[in-house]
C-alpha cells in the first residue's frame, strides 16, 4: 500500500500516522506539502491531525482551501481512499468530502484521554479487520470534536450505514457516559456514501504498540493494507 500524508502549516500528528503506517506496511509514506497540488499516484491519502493554520477562523477551514485539497477532492471523486483524522476530519468536512461539521466540545475544553469506540460496520476498506459491534480503545485529543449535522443528514447517515464509529462505554453501551465531546448520536467517525472516505476524531495511530497506548488502533491500518495492497 502506497500512502501519502498531507502536511499543512500547523499539522502536528503527521509523524504519528506516518510512523503507524510504516510499522504496519514497512514502508514510509510520502509526505505531501500543502502547496503541492500535483503529487504522485497513491493508494491512500491521509489528512493528519494538528492545528492547520492554528485552527484560526474555524478548524480546517483554511486548509480545506489549499491547492493540495483541490487535488484530493479530484482523486476522492475518482475513488482514491481518503482518511481524515482529527484535524484531518475537520479539513475533509470543510472541503465537503464528508457531511456535517465538528463543533466546539460541549464542555468547552480540550480533551486528551482514552475513549472506547463501537465499530459500527466491518464492511469497509477501513474497518474490515474489526467485527461490527466490537469495542476498541483509542485516544482522542481535540477541542472541536463535537459532530453535528442537520436532522436530514443524520437520518441519511444512519439509513445508509455511513456511521463508522460511535463513542461508547467500556462495555459497549452507546450513551452519554462514553461521549467525550457532546457529539450527536455519539458519532466518532463517518464515511462518505461510497465508504471510500473516512473521517474520525480519535487517533488510531496512537494505539498501535503495546507499551504506547495499546494496539486497538492497529486493525484500521492492517485493514487498509489488506484492502489496498
Amino acid at each position: 500500500m502506497k500512502a501519502a500524508v498531507l502536511v499543512f502549516p500547523g499539522s502536528n500528528r503527521e509523524g504519528d500516522v506516518a510512523q503507524a503506517i510504516e510499522l504496519v506496511t514497512g514502508r514510509r509514506p510520502t509526505m505531501v506539502w500543502h502547496g503541492d497540488g500535483d503529487f504522485e499516484k497513491v493508494d491512500l491519502i491521509v489528512v493528519p491531525g494538528g492545528f492547520s493554520y492554528g485552527d484560526y477562523l474555524r478548524c480546517g477551514a483554511m486548509a480545506a482551501q489549499s491547492p493540495v485539497m483541490a487535488e484530493v477532492k479530484k482523486r476522492a471523486a475518482q475513488g482514491v481512499p481518503v482518511l481524515g483524522i482529527c484535524n484531518g476530519f475537520q479539513i475533509v468536512t470543510e472541503a465537503g468530502l464528508l457531511p456535517g461539521t465538528l463543533m466546539r466540545n460541549s464542555h468547552l475544553k480540550f480533551v486528551c484521554a482514552d475513549v472506547h469506540l463501537k465499530v459500527e460496520t466491518s464492511q469497509s476498506l477501513f474497518t474490515n479487520r474489526y467485527q461490527a459491534g466490537q469495542v476498541i480503545k483509542v485516544p482522542v485529543a481535540h477541542a472541536e470534536g463535537n459532530y453535528f449535522a442537520d436532522a436530514d443528514t443524520m437520518k441519511k447517515l444512519e439509513d445508509r450505514g455511513q456511521i463508522a464509529f460511535r463513542y461508547c462505554s467500556p462495555e459497549g453501551a452507546v450513551d452519554g457516559s462514553g461521549n467525550p465531546n457532546g457529539s450527536s448520536s455519539n458519532i466518532a467517525g463517518v464515511f462518505n456514501e461510497t465508504k471510500t472516505v473516512l473521517g474520525l476524531m480519535p487517533h488510531p495511530e496512537n494505539a498501535v504498540e503495546p507499551m504506547f497506548g495499546g494496539t486497538d488502533g492497529k486493525g484500521l491500518f492492517e485493514g487498509m493494507v489488506e484492502a489496498l495492497s
Binding site: D16, Q19, A20, F110, V111, A141, E205, V208, F212
Partner: peptide
C-alpha cells in the same frame, strides 16, 4: 488538568 493537555502526541509516551 492533564486531560486538557495532549500527553500522547508523538506516540512515545510510555
Amino acid at each position: 488538568i492533564w486531560h486538557q493537555y495532549d500527553h500522547l502526541i508523538m506516540g512515545n509516551t510510555a
